[in-house]
């Protein structure tokens, strides 16, 4: 059962919509309160990045299973300017918006798997997964 739902991120309110969707999906998938908070927070960070840096993009949430494990997959994609130095955004404390800069490394810590691909001028896709233990 590969059920996928998505939220377009255009305005600041869409961040709220995205994390509400994430929280519901996490709950439905059977995650506990702590993992629900982790997933919701990760989505909030990803959605805010899209809103701040790309202006427009999409958060997709999908249930996944792999070799007997079940989980949730979040895909954040945009057609923004891209990330010029991927290594740098994964450093703690790095931020271009003057925020806390906890964004990307934080999301990586909250989730179980994290993959980012970015091409300057084309956009960024971040895929991250959380497994039910």
């Amino acid at each position: 059962m590969n059920f996928r739902s998505s939220v377009e991120i255009i305005t600041e309110w869409d961040i709220v919509a995205a994390r509400q969707l994430g929280r519901n999906e996490a709950k439905k998938a059977g995650f506990g309160t702590v993992d629900q908070a982790r997933i919701t927070t990760a989505i909030s960070e990803l959605a805010r990045n899209i809103y701040l840096y790309a202006g427009k993009g999409k958060i997709e949430i999908e249930r996944v299973s792999e070799g007997g494990a079940f989980g949730i997959k979040i895909i954040a994609s945009d057609e923004g300017p891209g990330i010029p130095d991927l290594r740098k955004v994964m450093e703690d404390g790095f931020s271009t918006s003057g925020g806390l800069g906890a964004g990307m490394p934080g999301v990586k810590r909250l989730m179980d798997e994290f993959k980012v691909s970015s091409e300057p001028g084309v956009g960024t896709i971040i895929t991250t997964k959380k497994w039910l233990h």
Partner: peptide
């Protein structure tokens, strides 16, 4: 039930 880096 959750606080992200912006709210924090």
């Amino acid at each position: 039930d959750f606080i992200d880096s912006f709210i924090a």
